[in-house]
């Protein structure tokens, strides 16, 4: 329940943070989220800063550069948009640190299963991808030509697809053998 409330609170906070256009209110919101983040606030704050710095800088500098071409440029806008962007990313990182995503999605059994399976599947896929990268590096004796690099990238994708096909079949068999697919065992089970 707690996690579902967190998710709901997060949604409301996001809508609020994009509906309020007074930088003081947004700054107060940022302070509030930092208090909610508690001891993790400094780490989250730093990670959030790094995550948005590049994009925000490009936009801010681009906007400010408009002054050179005689466009109306306002400092208010720069303050407003940067506080808002930082508040939203801070909010998202705080949620990610506090929420148990599986519990938050528990209103649908199928969605919970789906996300559980995805999260457990990402690990072997990442490991395979890392091995593909290292193996390519291990066999590289000089700077590769563009053609060779495309072949390597394409082969990596092919191996990932192969792995996906194999795993999907295996998991389906395993789930069937554990009785997951009995018609009454799933919510909204497909009738056909």
């Amino acid at each position: 329940m707690k996690d579902r409330l967190l998710l709901l609170g997060y949604a409301i906070a996001v809508i609020a943070a994009t509906s309020v256009h007074n930088p003081w209110w947004l700054a107060a919101g940022l302070l509030l989220v930092a208090v909610l983040a508690g001891r993790q606030a400094p780490t989250i704050g730093w990670r959030a800063l790094r995550a948005v710095l590049f994009f925000s800088l490009v936009i801010s500098i681009g906007y400010a550069a408009g002054a050179l071409f005689g466009q109306a440029v306002s400092l208010d806008y720069l303050i407003l948009v940067n506080i808002r962007v930082y508040l939203l990313i801070f909010l998202t990182f705080t949620l990610a640190a506090k929420i148990d995503i599986l519990r938050a999605l528990s209103f649908s059994r199928n969605l919970t299963y789906l996300v559980t399976l995805v999260l457990s599947q990402i690990i072997p896929f990442r490991r395979l991808f890392e091995d593909l990268r290292l193996a390519a590096e291990s066999r590289r004796l000089r700077r590769l030509r563009l053609r060779e690099r495309y072949l390597q990238s394409a082969a990596a994708a092919v191996h990932l697809f192969d792995r996906a096909e194999h795993d999907a079949r295996e998991i389906a068999l395993a789930m069937r053998s554990r009785g997951f697919f009995q018609p009454d065992a799933t919510d909204n089970a497909p009738g056909d």
């Binding site: 399976l117 990402i122 896929f125 990238s153 389906a172 789930m175 697919f181």
Partner: peptide, 28 residues
């Protein structure tokens, strides 16, 4: 659901993981 059989859920999960990692493949 109409087109895929009961194996939809595991297929969807594996393909999501696949798509997730596919986005790390390098475009030289």
């Amino acid at each position: 659901r109409r087109r895929v059989d009961e194996t939809l859920l595991p297929r969807l999960a594996v393909l999501t993981a696949l798509a997730f990692v596919l986005m790390s493949v390098m475009l030289p």
